[in-house]
Design a protein around this nucleic acid. Structure first.
Lengths: 210, 210
DNA sequence: CGCAAAGGTGAAATCCGGTTCAACTTCGCC
DNA sequence: GGCGAAGTTGAACCGGATTTCACCTTTGCG
């Protein structure tokens, strides 16, 4: 992760030369590693520059402050996460299949990129505005998907007003399952977890006669 | 919040006199307010002592460090949250009813006590061990409830191994709905949100013929 | 009352990491 | 090959926070 697009995201001085672009890229990657491992407050600019192999002052050629890189990183990772899930879900035949595939992809993704999960979640306490933005964007896309699926008759019908809370419920599920089975412990595979969780929301807990 | 039991929770020097107990209680309440409003790192010991109306040094009569109070507070709030939900759910006729009531109580609780929500979630980045402990305890209790309900035939059956992921899924739902509809915006009542979310997991998204 | 133990005080020690800046090097183009 | 712009350097500055400590006040009990 820490894709090249973070350069675009930041309100920083764009580098004019090839050397500059390369340094910026290394700083961004170093920052992702440093923040991911140590958290925002434990992370040190010197740690970032050491990882990037540049001097302390160089950091301030590209960023105004510690918080600014952090914000740029969150935006970047927010995009990366959404893009990854969207890509995985692309060929799904219907909404329920998409849910399963998306959840599985999300858990596998947090397992592969724990820094990314951590940085986004820590944003809640470091840059609340971008954190909200991230989930509001995610939830809105999700809500539209649910509304569309209802319209096409792929899932059970219900009032429009239920789509948004449903979307948040499903996101919350994903995030916690990602934390538990992606970050904390890998005792179940992403596929198994997704199967069970989507089973829950597709079939429901209510007992049916028969 | 910030119940008296935090005194018990901390590994601090127990006060021997009435005056001491009173001061400790005020410090704990002040700490909850300070951490809740400003977050762990922005919070200052001077802020805590100012709120409590005592001198700076007094803090160190009862706590070894800033982190120690924070941990004590998390333990305390973890208990308070579980106790509150358990109490609300007490008279529920069956598991599905308990789910609805519990979720509604949780959302209402975070709305009433935002500091509590914030402190517990921030623990993820300040004292990860107590954070894990909190959710592992919560999830284990939840899992047992689901297993019991299955055994009694109150909810759809399934393999034992599904109970744990189901529990985590339901907890994640609650936490995110608490954040969105408890903390961020009160455009829907806790009851409405709980109704929709529990509808989702009890009836399921799959379309049924008929 | 009297005095040890408990509690309270706040100035000062201590630490620490973010940010600045003036001097230096490299780059890219004419 | 030379010149201005871009990039790099790291020592020093700086503010702010936690924690310590020697001294003072209050409490509770015989």
């Amino acid at each position: 992760m820490a894709t090249s697009s973070a350069a675009t995201a930041g309100g920083d001085k764009e580098p004019r030369t090839e050397r500059g672009r390369k340094t910026l890229r290394r700083l961004i990657e170093a920052a992702a590693a440093e923040f991911g491992e140590r958290g925002f407050h434990e992370a040190a600019i010197t740690g970032i520059t050491r990882r990037a192999g540049v001097a302390l002052g160089t950091f301030y050629t590209y960023f105004e402050s510690k918080e600014e890189v952090f914000r740029a990183l969150v935006l970047d990772m927010s995009r990366a996460t959404r893009a990854h899930v969207a890509e995985a879900v692309k060929g799904a035949p219907d909404r329920l299949a998409a849910e399963r595939i998306g959840l599985e992809a999300f858990i596998a993704f947090t397992r592969r990129h724990p820094e990314l999960y951590r940085i986004i979640e820590e944003a809640q306490f470091v840059a609340e505005d971008v954190y909200r933005e991230h989930y509001l964007t995610f939830a809105e896309a999700y809500r539209r998907n649910l509304a569309g699926a209802r319209a096409r008759g792929e899932i059970a019908d219900g009032p429009d007003s239920a789509d948004e809370p449903r979307a948040w419920a499903l996101i919350g599920m994903s995030v916690f399952l990602g934390m538990r089975y992606g970050l904390w412990n890998e005792d179940l595979s992403p596929g198994e977890v997704a199967e069970i969780a989507i089973g829950l929301v597709s079939e429901g807990l209510r007992k049916r006669e028969g």
